[in-house]
Nucleic acid binder design. Structure first.
Lengths: 262, 262
DNA sequence: CGGCAAATTGAGCATTGTCAATGTCTGTGG
DNA sequence: CCACAGACATTGACAATGCTCAATTTGCCG
């Protein structure tokens, strides 16, 4: 299905190294994990709530979201995932999936068995800590989302979501206009913020008319980064990223066009 | 099962053993952790957002909540903790607290240094896994809370919160009326559900007038457990508790009431 | 018997949801 | 190259859930 020759796990390693430091051995052990690659079409499920998982899943390209459904069928998106993210890692220790994971844009993923992951963690405690740390960051993000849907109005919620995705795509804190990859429809933004797509639409229109942002099919341009953070009541602390301004990386967010190319 | 020599950490061990299994050595290692005990008065803080933590904290009696504040000063409660819960464990790997922890009722806590916790985890991988698993359950609960505030109305939100606390206090799935410890004021319920105390009050009044529940200063009596679960769209799966029925009891009603499986 | 925190009530209003229709863009097949 | 389908975005009118503000009452505790 896919070329598994050269280690394609570098996006995962890069992401882990944002918050953890590895020796060469440890890095190599991670890159040497046995992976089964697969390409997944938009809106397909990677996991469904209630399933028993035996693999976790690395997002090598594209984007994905986690969600749950209520009895009445409305959807709540719980997290958005980008290239390099580890999905379903927690299911190594709690095998029954408590939520579903669905691809947003077309994605390439690598499956690693829980067994293999736990084994490498056992052999290298630093790696176990790094993985644990990732799940803790996920929990921190989830808590911030509780605040977002619980205590902010529509405008704030959407601005906050924009800020989060911008920062996670490596946007610098400089006030320069920048364009980020935007994998979500307005309906999905609604599902992530606890709003309806209609209200999302109206709120985004307001933000556009104020010159805060402009939108394209698969991208959003932020015209005033400081203002957007202010509107969204956003502070990056909860992401537990190392430097205030992405110190080790000087380049801007990858162009939106490239990220969903093919 | 394991009989400790009178360590005060048994509430923690009991809670961990809901989801993990330990050898005698491992249990003993946990009970032997060096602890500093402290009594904390209602509404006092255990941690404040932004602080650097060096200890984690076991709730030996009483209850506590985690919260964050928005710019405008409104509060969102992120979790409620009961006797036996481990607080701030994640700060062992992410030392800067991303939220505050505050005592609800008077509480007794035991502080354990992160160093000691990580050490015992290193010595006993089963323990490390058990601790990791606890943080994963916390994350699962946080995700369910996102759904609660994002996609349920006031009545559903409050019923769901009631169900969660009932189950976590070991209430059986039998439909018998039962009374649970209720450590929160209506204002705090509002902060947990993203509502105002006024609206919480009105909603609870409705639930009372329907005979669903009745309330006392520090307790709630649930008159129709099945109905309450239904109102709250509640399924216990997200708590990742072992048995279909509450604690590790054998007295579970041969439940035809378990229709709520997804 | 005060003093407080918590619960309760009422009136009016605002944000957001609902429903239903219409407009717009993109990719596809003829 | 154009017509068409389908997904997405946009709009309008209206309803409603939940909020604000401001009393007032209740119950606990010293």
């Amino acid at each position: 299905m896919f070329d598994s020759r050269h280690s394609s796990l570098t996006p995962m390693l890069d992401k882990l190294q944002l918050r953890s430091t590895f020796s060469d051995d440890e890095s190599q052990a991670l890159l040497d994990l046995a992976v089964r690659f697969e390409r997944i079409e938009p809106s397909k499920y990677i996991v469904r709530e209630g399933e028993v998982m035996e693999n976790c899943c690395i997002l090598l390209s594209g984007s994905a979201s986690r969600h749950k459904l209520t009895r009445k069928g409305s959807r709540q998106i719980l997290a958005v995932h980008l290239r390099g993210d580890l999905l379903g890692l927690g299911n190594a220790l709690l095998p029954i999936a408590d939520h579903s994971i669905q691809v947003l844009s077309r994605a390439e993923v690598g499956y690693i068995t829980h067994e293999a992951i736990l084994e490498v963690g056992l052999a290298y405690p630093i790696i176990a800590c790094a993985l644990w740390r990732e799940t803790l960051v996920e929990a921190s993000v989830a808590r911030e989302w509780i605040v977002n849907v619980g205590r902010r109005d529509a405008r704030e919620r959407i601005a906050h979501l924009l800020c989060e995705l911008a920062v996670r795509q490596g946007m610098d804190s400089a006030a320069t206009p920048d364009t980020i990859f935007w994998p979500m429809t307005q309906e999905q933004v609604g599902d992530a913020t606890g709003l309806t797509s209609v209200h999302v639409n109206r709120t985004i229109q307001t933000m556009r008319s104020e010159g805060l942002i402009s939108t394209d099919r698969q991208s959003v341009t932020i015209h005033d980064w400081a203002a957007l953070q202010d509107v969204g009541d956003f502070s990056r602390g909860y992401l537990h990223l190392p430097k205030p301004a992405g110190g080790e990386m000087r380049f801007k967010a990858p162009g939106a066009a490239q990220m969903h190319a093919q």
